[in-house]
């Protein structure tokens, strides 16, 4: 088993799991709310979705800054060259998407003429003027980026499972808080 010093720092770990948790809430909420008939519940869910999503965006900005100023622990020596490349690319794409997905949502809401007031308290500026067609286009962009995010997260989780149960080099421990892993 690889040395346990090869672990992400606590800030990186906290940010990782917070963002993961929020995305696991915002994503199904987005899919569910979308098809509801208009009702107070629908309006509430849309707002909750937007609040969660903007929270992800804020955390993602902090995360990206943290990542660019802190070198992650080196990967175990047992990994192949292609594994280095693919994991690096996947991680960079995931960073891009956790920024781009909520940003596209914010842009879409702006174009549709529905401002975002974060948790009903903090009004965010509209990034675009009201424009119906652009709003509909951005809804498709938001949907498309979400599909990409879904696929990459699936791949990300599949990789973790592979490393734990097939390669048995337990990459997962690097991202778990101290004490959770045996």
């Amino acid at each position: 088993m690889s040395p346990l010093s090869a672990r992400y720092d606590n800030i990186a770990i906290t940010l990782h799991w917070l963002v993961a948790l929020l995305i696991f809430a915002a994503f199904p909420l987005g899919v569910y709310m979308h098809d509801l008939p208009l009702s107070p519940t629908k309006l509430q869910l849309y707002s909750y979705h937007k609040w969660l999503g903007i929270t992800v965006l804020m955390l993602a900005v902090v995360r990206a800054l943290w990542r660019s100023t802190h070198t992650p622990p080196p990967l175990p020596a047992t990994l192949q060259r292609w594994e280095h490349v693919v994991s690096h690319l996947t991680h960079m794409a995931l960073y891009a998407l956790i920024l781009a997905v909520p940003l596209s949502g914010w842009l879409m809401s702006s174009a549709k003429g529905f401002q975002t007031v974060w948790f009903g308290v903090l009004p965010l500026p509209d990034l675009l003027g009201k424009d119906k067609e652009l709003g509909e286009l951005l809804a498709l962009v938001h949907q498309g980026l979400n599909l990409a995010l879904f696929l990459l997260v699936a791949m990300h989780i599949a990789a973790v499972i592979k490393h734990r149960f097939i390669d048995r080099d337990d990459i997962l421990a690097r991202m778990l808080p101290k004490g959770i892993n045996k």
Binding site: Q44, S47, G113, F114, Q115, V117
Partner: peptide, 8 residues
């Protein structure tokens, strides 16, 4: 008016 705190 306001909807979920959002001015419309």
């Amino acid at each position: 008016y306001k909807q979920m705190g959002v001015p419309l």
